[in-house]
Amino acid sequence: MKKVLSLLVVLALGFGIINSLNQNSSFPKFGEADVSDRVSDRYINKNVTEENEEVIFGEDGYETGSSNFVTSIVANYRSFDTLGEVTVLFISAFGVALLFSKDSKRVSLNFKPNFMLRVGSRALFGLIIMTGIYISVHGHLTPGGGFPGGTMIASSILLLYLSNDSFRTKIKGFKLLEGFMGSLYVLIGVAGIYVTGYFLENFLDTGVVGDLFSAGIIPIVYVIIGLKVGSEIASIIDNFLTEEVS
């Protein structure tokens, strides 16, 4: 009864919101938004700081050289937000460790990995981690980037966890990696202040749109993010898998 009631209330609210947005003359209909008077227009055409009509593949000299404009927003125009999101992930991972390590002792996995798992995971590990790294590195060129890439790296490590109990002892390395990558991200930002005057400014040459070595600090940042996300999710996995069930 309670559930039905709450469903009704939520439905009423949902209907109300949709209805009120439908009647809202200032709220654009789906697919009819006028992009030209929004900041997104400038992000897409890379004309925030300079006059620019259209981005052409294979040319150079743009304010951000990333051919994937989502990436240019995530890792350049609003890189500060991304730093924030990375911090959110970081503090969540840390929180998981904090909560789990509080009262319970860590235990080893409660099942023995069989032969199939061990062999299969070793075979898959390389593929997955390579894909992950590729996606991270090519974040400025193709869809994807540090966050999905990092998650893939983490999932490859998950395989190692499942198949190899002794792997867990090397977790210290991940903490170091995590901390190091985070610091590097901030330091790149701070370097921006001293090179050009702005935090997280893209102070390297932006190169030719579409090249692997282009877009200035964007690929660097994305690799950092990839590694950081990977190590963070790995440590979350570690915490969850080895928590004592009481």
């Binding site: 900041v39 400038r42 992000y43 925030v48 700081t49 350049n76 125009y77 609003r78 890189s79 500060f80 937000d81 921006g192 050009t196 005057g197 702005y198 935090f199 997280l200 400014e201 893209n202």
Partner: peptide, 10 residues
């Protein structure tokens, strides 16, 4: 400004 994008950035 963060990143140097005046009022269009953060």
């Amino acid at each position: 400004s963060i990143g140097g994008f005046s009022q269009y950035g953060i």
